[in-house]
């Protein structure tokens, strides 16, 4: 089985999200980078399915040169190869991203049976790249998947809903957009990280095709009520004050 996992490099933000002065992007000078948890699971799922059924896993990302770091991590986690669509530093809209990924898949002349995506990226949360790629390639697509089983030529995918899950059965090839919780991603060892870095990545130069306008004006960090919490006390001696608060709130 040939599996593809599409991932996106995003800043690893902590307790605050700092913005650049022009408010056009996140100020990443002090931040590390990662991929969304959904996409970590997409990579893990691809690797697990290939471990079960044989074949190989390709990790693909569209992003700046630095996104090779995320591809190496995916390789360290068990992917066999990495494909970087070099898109520069600018943020691409999901329409252009999906088109470039679909083009790359065709150009690679690979027949992927399973095309895994994160359900939505951590940063822009557009919820579209997987479905748009499926539409371009004319293959079925399921989203929000937290359980996947592949049997010859088809996939049984489950989506969680209140009180249970919806079960979808789709023929392969298919796009499957997954959510964190579908599996527990492994942590790559130092050795596998070192080894991954020695691997050659496939680099491609995607064409950016922007559809009708969607134009970012600016980003804004919303106001949070910065008022510090009322400190009820220190250590176990605070317990009676906590009980009073719980009574006030009405949960006791």
């Amino acid at each position: 089985m040939e599996a593809l996992a599409c991932i996106k490099r995003v800043p690893d933000t902590g307790a605050k999200i700092p913005l650049t002065d022009d408010q056009q992007s996140i100020d990443t000078t002090t931040l590390g980078f990662t991929v969304s948890p959904h996409e970590e699971c997409a990579v893990e799922e691809a690797v697990q399915q290939v471990e079960t059924h044989g074949g190989s896993t390709t990790a693909l990302t569209l992003g700046p040169e630095e996104a090779s770091e995320q591809l190496y991590t995916a390789i360290a986690r068990g992917a066999d190869e990495g494909v970087l669509l070099e898109a520069g530093d600018e943020e691409w809209r999901p329409t252009a991203t999906a088109r470039a990924i679909a083009d790359a898949i065709e150009e690679l002349e690979r027949k992927f049976d399973l095309l895994l995506f994160g359900n939505e990226s951590a940063d822009t949360e557009n919820y579209q790249v997987g479905p748009r790629v499926a539409n371009e390639l004319d293959v079925p697509c399921v989203t929000g998947i937290k359980d996947l089983e592949v049997t010859d030529g088809s996939a049984v995918a489950k989506r969680e809903v209140t009180g249970g899950s919806e079960v979808y059965e789709v023929p392969l090839p298919a796009v499957v957009a997954v959510k964190e919780g579908i599996n527990s991603p492994r942590y790559p060892s130092m050795r596998s990280r070192m080894r991954a870095k020695r691997q050659e990545l496939t680099r491609m130069d995607p064409e950016r095709v922007d559809g009708p306008t969607f134009e970012r004006i600016r980003l804004e960090a919303p106001e949070t009520d910065e008022g510090a919490a009322e400190v009820l006390g220190e250590g176990p001696e605070a317990a009676p004050a906590v009980v009073d608060v719980l009574e006030d709130i009405g949960v006791l």
Binding site: A229, L232, P236, E237
Partner: peptide
């Protein structure tokens, strides 16, 4: 501590059982 309404500064391993006991 900045985002919340109330806070207790302390080790949860002591504070949580103390709250349970107080209730």
């Amino acid at each position: 501590m900045e985002n919340g309404e109330y806070a207790v500064v302390g080790d949860l391993h002591e504070v949580v059982p103390a709250i349970t006991e107080a209730i």
